[in-house]
Design a protein around this nucleic acid. Sequence first.
DNA 1: CTGAAAGCGCTTACAG
DNA 2: CTGAAAGCGCTTACAG
Lengths: 337, 337
Amino acid sequence: MASIREVAKAAGVSVGSISRYLNGQQLKAANMQKIKRAIDDLGYQENIIAKGLKNNQSFAVGLLMNNLASRLSMDIVSSIEAVMEQAGYSILLSGFQGSSTLAANKVDYLLSHAVDGLILFEADQNWPGMARLADVQVPVISLNSPNGLANVDSILVDDRGSVRRLVQHLIAQGHRRIGVLAAPQTDYTAHERLTGVREAVRSHPHVEATVYYGDYSRPSGFEGAQKLIDDHVDALFVCNFNMALGALEYCNRAGIRIDQDLAFSHFDYLDEMSSLISNRLVIQQPAKEIGKMCAERLLSRINHQSENVGATFVFDNLIVGLGDDPHAETQPTIVTP
Amino acid sequence: MASIREVAKAAGVSVGSISRYLNGQQLKAANMQKIKRAIDDLGYQENIIAKGLKNNQSFAVGLLMNNLASRLSMDIVSSIEAVMEQAGYSILLSGFQGSSTLAANKVDYLLSHAVDGLILFEADQNWPGMARLADVQVPVISLNSPNGLANVDSILVDDRGSVRRLVQHLIAQGHRRIGVLAAPQTDYTAHERLTGVREAVRSHPHVEATVYYGDYSRPSGFEGAQKLIDDHVDALFVCNFNMALGALEYCNRAGIRIDQDLAFSHFDYLDEMSSLISNRLVIQQPAKEIGKMCAERLLSRINHQSENVGATFVFDNLIVGLGDDPHAETQPTIVTP
DNA sequence: CTGAAAGCGCTTACAG
DNA sequence: CTGAAAGCGCTTACAG
């Protein structure tokens, strides 16, 4: 790796001139020629790291994801990457797999890599070690988990409202015994979703919601579906894609026909199964839009062009099967701090 | 961000002592106490970037993926991340979405970020700009695409062999008209898979393979299945998961029963659909194993502990439905350069 | 054991 | 327009 100094020697000018050339300043034409030659000859490549040390910026942002191996994470990561790379930033990627300890460590880790900004996906503000985010000098955005710190923006999806709407629809269709496959209530999102169910059912005394708590795994979806169906529910709402797969597997094995024997509704990724089962209600998160907005917001904060630092942005889900327009513009509601 | 210098001042020692303390050297007990206090008081956090500038290492590796939004990519990324993070490295993630130009740019970009190693996923060695990899000072590993450069290791999967075995099985079952939904032959992997079909069919003059070329998209799978089935194939092999979903969708719409009317086989991700369709042959790539091995190999090369630099490692796929043991240890075959 | 100094690759006032 | 020098946060021979 040739350095700026070697280029300077080869071109017969000072290192300052090389730096200026590299940064687009005008030099004497003859010098520019010589420098260009030297750069080509030596195969010089700038060292963004060194540059960043001086400029106090690294052109990298930290992206800390709850579960790198999930479908949703993938969509989020790829949409964020697309925007950041356009802007000349790279992504420092980490996962914390649901462990709050790991999450805190990784925050430190990313910060020690001098990132210019930080995105947290599903990291709870109450976890030990998260309070230190208040002291972080770079912009921080919390995705899918609300964060009240003054320097942290939150980008959320109105899962509660979507679930409420979905369950209200089930009730309007005449369902009275609704089985719910819920995720561990320690997670913000899981709690919101179940709350949505409760809110929908509250005003209907004749409707009963039976809840089975799974653990995001497919077998727990299978088992939960079995339990709930044995319990004679006439509609099933599954809070998570993976568990929905398990539940479908059970229905399939048990010969239960979706829609005819049982109303079936769930979160996320209708798409992969659309060929195989129709007549479901599916809540789809605007993953791409969220990722895009998150990246753009981070960039604008990095460039000090943001208003309402600390604001919360709430997106709506799309419910497939309720006549929502899949091509509608998704605009978040903004709650300023 | 407090620097080492500020800590030194607060502790009343020299910066050298702080550095030594941070790196685990023994100092006079009293000094260690003072330093510890100063660090805690100031909330000092080391700057890995600056450290790396001096040490000529960044503790970051570049990961350049073909298509960040694919299921396979996700599995690869998350398994690589898990290993690298354990070793104290972070991942600089980029995607090139099938564009060879983008790929070349991103290689430059990652290198200018002074990565300690580079992993390329599905990047063809013949693309313009890829030859420069020969001059790269850090270890490089090419995943899912062979690379003959002396400093690049290749990690591959024997797709050709797996497809051959699968098609031979179809033939042994009595199928004579085999429809193949292939991907664009510009990709190494796509070509290998189709070659596997050809090799299997070659020695069976009475067997005919009809090929439809899709574009990885679901609609192209749908259309291809339609065309091939209209053409009276009695078995279908789909080279790609996404196209398989499209093909299944067609079968579903057209009332074609898998296994009874048509043998159905495809690449990747049996899992997601296992509840819904049985009796398929599915080729499953050992994504997790590949990712793990790739990360471990890169680490060992970074630490100069590798033998056979430039070697090629070939993994086997698992074919579900042929009695392969899903829990068998997957060990690659090594081809030394 | 520890301080002073040089240096990693770069940028940028400051003079000229 | 351009060179010499200081400095970003760190490490590490070199003396002591």
